[in-house]
C-alpha cells in the first residue's frame, strides 16, 4: 500500500492505495466520483477520459500511484455546483447524449481539445471523436455540440 496525495476538482485527497489500483477505479470507488465511467479498460472507448495536470488522458491506462502529486479534473468539476458550461449546454441543446455513459469522457477530451484548438474545423472535431465510442447518438450531434461550444468561446 502506497500513500498518495491528489487534488481532484480543487479538493485535496490523501489516500493509501495498492500499487496496481487503476486510476479509474481510484476515482470511482476510492473517491466516489462516479461520473468518470469505465467502458473497456483497454483504452479504446474513451469513457474514462479525465484531465491530469492539464492534459486529457485515459484513466484506465494509468495507475493511481502515478497520479501522486497531480491535479485532476473530472466531469464533476466542469460546472461544479454552478450552471452548466457552454460545452455542457451545447450537448443538451443538440441532444448529443442519450444513455450518457460516454459523455463524461467526451466532455473532458473536448475541454482539453478546445483549449488547444479554439477554432477547430469539423474534420478536427471528427478526428478527436475517433477516440471515443458512442453507440447511441450516431456522433453527428456530438460534433455539432463541440463546434457550437467552440463558436461560443
Amino acid at each position: 500500500m502506497i500513500p498518495i496525495e491528489i487534488t481532484v476538482n480543487g479538493r485535496r485527497y490523501r489516500e493509501t492505495v495498492p500499487a496496481r489500483l487503476l486510476l479509474s477505479d481510484f476515482i470511482r470507488h476510492t473517491l466516489g466520483l462516479t461520473g468518470t465511467h469505465v467502458g473497456c479498460e483497454h483504452g479504446v472507448c474513451g469513457c474514462c477520459t479525465i484531465i491530469l495536470d492539464g492534459t486529457s488522458i485515459r484513466s484506465c491506462l494509468f495507475l493511481a500511484v502515478q497520479a501522486d502529486g497531480s491535479e485532476l479534473r473530472t466531469v464533476e468539476g466542469l460546472a461544479g455546483g454552478g450552471e452548466l458550461t457552454a460545452l455542457q449546454r451545447a450537448f443538451r441543446e443538440r441532444h448529443a447524449l442519450q444513455c450518457g455513459f460516454c459523455t463524461p469522457g467526451i466532455l473532458m477530451a473536448a475541454v482539453d481539445f478546445l483549449g488547444r484548438h479554439p477554432e477547430p474545423s469539423r474534420e478536427q472535431v471528427v478526428g478527436l471523436l475517433s477516440g471515443h465510442l458512442c453507440r447511441c447518438t450516431g456522433y453527428e450531434p456530438i460534433v455539432e455540440a463541440i463546434l457550437d461550444a467552440a463558436g461560443e468561446r
Partner: peptide
C-alpha cells in the same frame, strides 16, 4: 424539448449500476 435527464448526466451525476 431538450431532455430533463441531461442535467444530471452532463454533471457526472447519473446513477448507473456500478455507481
Amino acid at each position: 424539448l431538450p431532455r430533463f435527464e441531461d442535467e444530471a448526466l452532463l454533471r457526472g451525476a447519473g446513477r448507473y449500476l456500478d455507481d
